[in-house]
Simulated assay, not measured.
Amino acid sequence: MTCLVDFSRASLWISLASITFNPTFWNIAARREYHTHWISALFGGDRRKGCYAIATTIFSLGLIRDALFNAALAEQPTLALLEMPLVKLTAAALFASGMLFVLTSTYALGITGTFLGDYFGILMDERVTSFPFNVLDNPMYVGSTMSFIGASLWHAKPAGLLVSAYVWLVYSVALSYEGPFTTMIYSQRAQKENAKDSAKEINNNKKKKKL
C-alpha cells in the first residue's frame, strides 16, 4: 500500500517551516514595534508608512508560503478516493469560500486594520461587525485554512490535509497571543479617553463654580 504522506520529502518540511515562521515573525515584529517603535523609526517616525511596510512584508511572505505549499503538494502521493467529482466540487467550494472570507475581511478592516495597525497606534474607531465578522470571529484565519484544505482536496493530496490541520494549529496559537494583546491595546485607549473625559468634567465644574 502506498504511503499517504511522504515525510522524506524536504519540500514538506520546508512548507511546514514557512507556515510556522510567518505568524511567529509578524507577532514578534509587531510587538517590538508597539514597545519600541522600531519599524516606524525606519521611516522617520511615520507610523502609517511603517504599517504599510510590514503589510507588504507579511503579504510577500504569504505568497512565498503558498508557493512552498504547492511545491510540497506536487511531490506528495495522490489518493484516488479524493479524485471523485464530489470531492472536486467540495474543494472548489471550500477554496472559493475561504478566499471570500479573506478578501472581504481585508476590505472591511482596510490595510492598517488587517496588517496590525493597532500595534502601530493606528486604531479603528469601532469594532467591525459587518460581513464576514458577523459570521466568524476570525474570518481571515478561518478562510485561509479553508483555502489550504480546498487546494489539498483539489489536488487529491492527503499530505495537504495534514498540512492544513497544522496551519489551523499554528493560527490558533497565534490567536492566543494576538487576541489578548489587541484587547489590551484598545482597553488602554478606553482608559485614556475616560481619563480625559473625567479631566474635562472636573475643569467644567471648576469653571461653573467660578461663575
Results as ranks from 00 to 15, higher is better:
residue 6 D to R: 14
residue 67 A to F: 15
residue 89 L to S: 09
residue 60 S to C: 15
residue 35 H to A: 14
residue 140 M to D: 00
residue 44 G to K: 11
residue 10 A to Y: 11
residue 161 L to P: 06
residue 207 K to W: 05
residue 85 P to M: 05
residue 63 L to N: 14
residue 180 P to I: 11
residue 81 L to G: 09
residue 7 F to H: 11
residue 3 C to Y: 15
residue 47 R to D: 09
residue 145 T to Y: 00
residue 62 G to A: 07
residue 5 V to P: 13
residue 150 G to N: 01
residue 1 M to C: 12
residue 198 S to G: 02
residue 81 L to P: 09
residue 138 N to D: 01
residue 26 W to Y: 14
residue 28 I to V: 15
residue 118 D to Y: 05
residue 58 I to S: 07
residue 182 T to H: 04
residue 59 F to S: 13
residue 28 I to S: 13
residue 33 E to K: 10
residue 64 I to N: 08
residue 164 S to T: 03
residue 178 E to T: 08
residue 40 S to D: 13
residue 54 I to G: 04
residue 208 K to T: 13
residue 144 S to W: 03
residue 163 V to N: 08
residue 46 D to P: 04
residue 21 F to G: 04
residue 133 F to M: 00
residue 110 G to D: 03
residue 177 Y to V: 14
residue 19 I to V: 14
residue 181 F to A: 12
residue 75 E to T: 15
residue 11 S to N: 10
residue 192 K to N: 11
residue 13 W to L: 08
residue 85 P to V: 02
residue 105 S to A: 04
residue 98 G to V: 00
residue 79 L to G: 09
residue 65 R to T: 14
residue 36 T to G: 08
residue 151 A to F: 06
residue 184 M to W: 12
residue 88 K to N: 08
residue 30 A to S: 15
residue 21 F to T: 05
residue 166 Y to G: 05
residue 190 A to E: 10
residue 194 N to W: 08
residue 122 I to W: 03
residue 109 L to T: 00
residue 120 F to M: 05
residue 146 M to V: 01
residue 65 R to F: 12
residue 154 W to R: 06
residue 198 S to Y: 04
